[in-house]
C-alpha cells in the first residue's frame, strides 16, 4: 500500500516466504526428477505434496505478515428494490403490447411446448433396445429351462459326484456362464435333516438353489459348514438350507428360489425347468 520502509518483521516474513516458495520449487523439481527416473507413486506424491505445501505456507505467511490486516466493512443494500423500481419493471413486462397479455396465444404456445417436451421423451425409450425383453419379463426369465445342463465356472458339465458333501459348488446354465441372474449353487445335504423340503426338489440330498440373495442380489457365498446355513456377505442375511433356504436372520425376506434338476441320459446334471421363483432381489411382480 504505502511506500513504508520494510520493518524488521516484514523482512523476516519476506525471507520466510522466499524460503517456502524455494521449498515448493524444490518439490516440483523432485517430482519431475522422480518421474524422469522411472516414477514411484509414493515419492511423486510426497514431492507434489511438498511443492503445494511450500506454496501454501508461503502464501499464508504473505497474507498474514505482509498484508495489513485491517477490518473492513461493505454496505449491504438489501434485496427488495424500492417500490417504484418494482412497479416500473412490472410495467415494462406487462405493457399493453406485451406478449404476456396474449393469454390465448400463450395457451397455444404452452400446448406446443408441452407436446414437444412429451415427444422428446419418446427417444429415451431407446435406452432399452427394442429387441430386448420387457423388463419384468427379463427379470423373471433366466437361461435355465428344461434340459439345460449344469456347468461349473469353467463351462464343464457336472455329474452328481462332482458335488462333494459339505461344500457349495457354483453352477451355471451351459453356454450362459456370464449371465447376471443365472448363477446357482449345488450342495449335498442329508435329506433326513430337512425340516422343510427344498422348493425345487432334490436328488438324494443334492439340491440346487439360486446363488443370488433375495435381499439385494449379492451372491451368497459363505457356507457355514455343518449348520447348513449360507451367509450373504453384503448385509449378512442368512439362509437355512435345511429349511428350504428360508431367510433366518438379516434383512432378506424371501427364500432362495430352487432349481429342479435331474440326471440326464448322458449322466450329467440338468435342469427340468426354470427357478421356482424369480432369482435375486424382489421387484414389482405378481406370481
Amino acid at each position: 500500500m504505502s511506500a513504508r520502509r520494510p520493518s524488521a518483521t516484514e523482512r523476516t516474513a519476506s525471507r520466510r516466504i522466499v524460503a517456502a516458495f524455494g521449498v515448493s520449487a524444490a518439490g516440483a523439481v523432485g517430482f519431475a526428477v522422480t518421474y524422469g527416473l522411472g516414477g514411484n507413486t509414493a515419492r511423486e506424491g510426497i514431492c507434489l505434496a511438498v511443492a503445494f505445501a511450500g506454496l501454501a505456507v508461503g502464501l499464508a505467511v504473505w497474507a498474514r505478515r505482509l498484508v495489513p490486516v485491517d477490518r473492513y466493512v461493505e454496505e449491504h443494500e438489501g434485496f427488495t428494490s424500492p417500490p417504484t423500481e418494482q412497479a416500473m419493471t412490472a410495467a415494462v413486462l406487462t405493457a399493453p403490447d406485451s406478449p404476456v397479455r396474449r393469454r390465448g396465444l400463450l395457451a397455444a404456445l404452452g400446448l406446443a411446448l408441452t407436446a414437444l417436451g412429451a415427444a422428446a421423451l419418446f427417444p429415451l425409450r431407446s435406452l432399452l433396445p427394442f429387441d430386448r425383453a420387457r423388463p419384468v419379463r427379463a427379470l423373471k426369465d433366466t437361461p435355465w429351462g428344461a434340459g439345460v445342463r449344469l456347468v461349473d465356472a469353467d463351462g464343464r458339465p457336472l455329474r452328481p459326484d462332482d458335488v462333494p458333501a459339505d461344500t457349495v459348488v457354483a453352477v451355471f446354465p451351459e453356454g450362459n456362464v456370464d449371465v447376471g441372474d443365472a448363477p446357482a449353487f449345488a450342495v449335498r445335504l442329508e435329506p433326513q435333516r430337512f425340516s422343510r423340503p427344498p422348493a425345487g426338489g432334490h436328488l438324494d440330498g443334492l439340491v440346487v438353489w439360486s446363488l443370488l440373495c433375495t435381499h439385494a442380489g449379492c451372491p451368497v457365498r459363505s457356507y457355514l459348514k455343518g449348520t447348513g446355513q449360507l451367509l450373504c456377505p453384503c448385509h449378512q442375511s442368512s439362509f437355512d438350507l435345511l429349511a428350504g433356504a428360508r431367510p433366518v436372520a438379516g434383512p432378506a425376506a424371501r427364500a432362495l428360489p430352487g432349481l429342479p434338476i435331474e440326471v440326464g441320459p448322458d449322466g450329467f446334471l440338468r435342469a427340468t425347468g426354470d427357478f421356482t421363483a424369480p432369482p435375486g432381489a424382489g421387484f414389482w411382480d405378481s406370481p
Partner: peptide, 19 residues
C-alpha cells in the same frame, strides 16, 4: 492470498494421500 493458500493446502494433502 489466504484462499490460494487453502487451495495449495488442499492439493498438498490430496497428493500426499494419493501418493
Amino acid at each position: 492470498l489466504r484462499s490460494l493458500a487453502l487451495f495449495a493446502w488442499v492439493l498438498a494433502v490430496l497428493f500426499a494421500l494419493g501418493g
